[in-house]
């Protein structure tokens, strides 16, 4: 079992969530991540609560802020990096993002059109008479 740990510390491989070696650097990374996340969260709640943005643009702004915060969490908390030893994790993430975008975006798109093309309830009731 000790051979296993030796291998871990000597190889340059990094799994998602694996820390650096120095305590200070580790704490610093989490502090930066926490600071950015708090800022983005506060911005989200402030944007939703106050009218400083044009009304119909609020959802767009909120989604942008959320994506930014998810990026911060991925980078500083889950330690997904652009380093070449992280390629597998990034590729898996890209695939996950693709599926999520297809499922959510596709559902909203299709159901929006279905809703739009549905006969209004009044006409439907009249036809049944």
């Amino acid at each position: 079992m000790s051979a296993d740990t030796n291998h871990d510390s000597e190889s340059g491989d990094v799994a998602p969530g694996v820390e650096g070696t120095s305590i200070r650097a580790g704490v610093q990374g989490y502090l930066i991540g926490l600071g950015l996340a708090v800022l983005l969260t506060a911005a989200s709640f402030y944007t939703a609560g106050s009218g400083w943005i044009w009304g119909p643009g609020i959802p767009v702004a909120l989604v942008v802020l959320a994506i930014a915060q998810i990026g911060v969490h991925l980078a500083f908390f889950l330690h997904i990096t652009t380093a070449p030893d992280n390629t597998n994790n990034v590729l898996a993430l890209a695939f996950g993002v693709l599926i999520v975008a297809l499922v959510v975006g596709g559902s909203i798109w299709i159901m929006g059109h279905v809703n739009h093309n549905m006969m209004p309830m009044q006409e439907m009731l009249q036809m049944q008479r």
Binding site: D4, D13, V18, L93, G96
Partner: peptide, 18 residues
């Protein structure tokens, strides 16, 4: 092969994505 820790982390990352 990569260390077990890396492989376990990668596998769990796949689970999280699913």
């Amino acid at each position: 092969p990569a260390s077990k820790r890396v492989i376990v982390g990668y596998g769990f990352w796949i689970f999280l994505l699913s």
